[in-house]
Amino acid sequence: MKDYEVYSSLKIPKNSKIIVRLDGRSFHSLASDLNLEKPYDENFYQVMSKVCEDLFEEFSPLFVYAFSDEISLLLENVPFDGRVEKINSVIASFAASSFVMHYNTQFKKPPAFDSRIIPVSDDDILKYFKWRQDESWRNCVNSHGISYLKSKYSNSEANDKINGMSQSDVHELLFKNGINLNDVETYKKRGIGIYRKNKKVVGFNKKENRNQTSYRSYVYTDWQLPIFSEEFFREIEVIK
C-alpha cells in the first residue's frame, strides 16, 4: 500500500536552501475566540516569538522572521532528507503544538498552521524577506486603520470604508486623527527576527596565566529589526 502514498517520494534537491512559510489557519476566528486586543495584542506576539524560538532550536534555521500569524524559516540544512511531505507536516504541527503550550489557555478549536516550501538562492533571500517585511508594514497600516474606523462606525461600515482606501489614504486618516504610525513600536511595523549572534566571553587561561577572549553564539530575538538590506543579512551571516 505504500505505493499509494501521494508525493511521498518528492524531495528537495540536495544542497538547496529553502524557506518554509507557516500561516495560521483561521486565526481571525481564533483572535475573536481569544478576545485579542486590537490592533495588536502584546501577549499574542510574545507567544509567537516563543514559537519562533522553539522552531529555531528544533530545526536550526539560519533565520526566522514573523509578523502577525505568519512565520518564515530559512533553512540551509534541510531536515528529513529533504522529504517535502514530512517537512511541511512536521514543522506545521510542531508550530501549532508550541503555540498551544505557550498560550496556556482553553481553545474553542485546536489552532493549526499550514505550510509551504519556497526554494531560494542567495540572491533571493533579501528579495523574499523584503517582500514579507513590506507586507508586515501593510498589515500594520491596515490593522490600525480598521481598528480606528471600527471605533467610529459599525463593523460593516468600517470594512466598506477601508476597502475603498489606498495605503496612503489610511495613513493620512490616522495622522489627521492623532495616530502617527512612526511612533508605533518597531516590531509592529517590521516584524520580529530570530537569528544567532556572537557574544564576547573573557576568561582566564591558567595554563598560560593570562586572560583569553572567545566568542560564543546564542539565539537572539530581535524586536527592533531595521528595514531589511543586504548589509543586515551579511552582518548576521545569512548571506555570505
Rank of each mutant, 00 (worst) to 15 (best):
K2Q: 10
D3M: 10
Y4M: 10
S8Q: 12
S9P: 01
L10W: 13
I12N: 02
K14Q: 13
K14D: 10
S16H: 11
I18D: 06
I19K: 00
R21H: 06
L22V: 03
R25H: 13
S26Y: 07
S26F: 09
H28Q: 14
S32V: 10
D33I: 04
L34G: 06
L34V: 09
E37F: 08
Y40C: 07
F44N: 08
V47Q: 10
M48C: 07
S49W: 07
S49Q: 14
V51M: 10
V51H: 04
L55F: 08
E57P: 00
S60A: 14
F63A: 04
Y65W: 11
F67R: 08
D69Q: 11
E70R: 12
E70H: 13
S72M: 06
L75V: 09
V78K: 11
P79W: 10
F80M: 12
G82R: 11
R83M: 14
A92N: 11
F94H: 15
S97H: 09
F99S: 06
V100M: 15
H102L: 08
T105D: 14
T105E: 14
Q106V: 15
Q106L: 14
F107G: 07
K109T: 14
K109N: 14
P111I: 11
A112Q: 12
D114M: 09
D114V: 07
I118R: 00
I118Y: 13
I118P: 01
S121R: 12
D123W: 00
D124M: 07
D124V: 03
I125F: 03
I125G: 01
Y128G: 00
W131R: 07
R132Q: 03
D134Y: 06
D134S: 13
S136A: 15
W137H: 10
C140W: 02
V141P: 05
S143H: 05
L149A: 07
L149P: 01
S151Q: 06
D160E: 15
K161R: 15
I162Q: 03
N163T: 05
M165P: 03
Q167M: 13
Q167V: 08
N182T: 10
D183N: 14
K188P: 02
I192Y: 06
I194H: 06
K197D: 02
N198K: 12
K200H: 01
V202N: 00
N205Y: 02
N205L: 02
K206V: 03
K206T: 04
K206W: 05
K207V: 11
N209I: 00
T213A: 01
Y215E: 05
Y215S: 05
S217C: 02
Y220I: 04
Y220D: 11
T221S: 10
W223R: 15
I227Q: 12
S229Q: 07
E231C: 01
E235C: 06
E235H: 13
E235Q: 15
I236S: 09
E237K: 15
I239V: 15
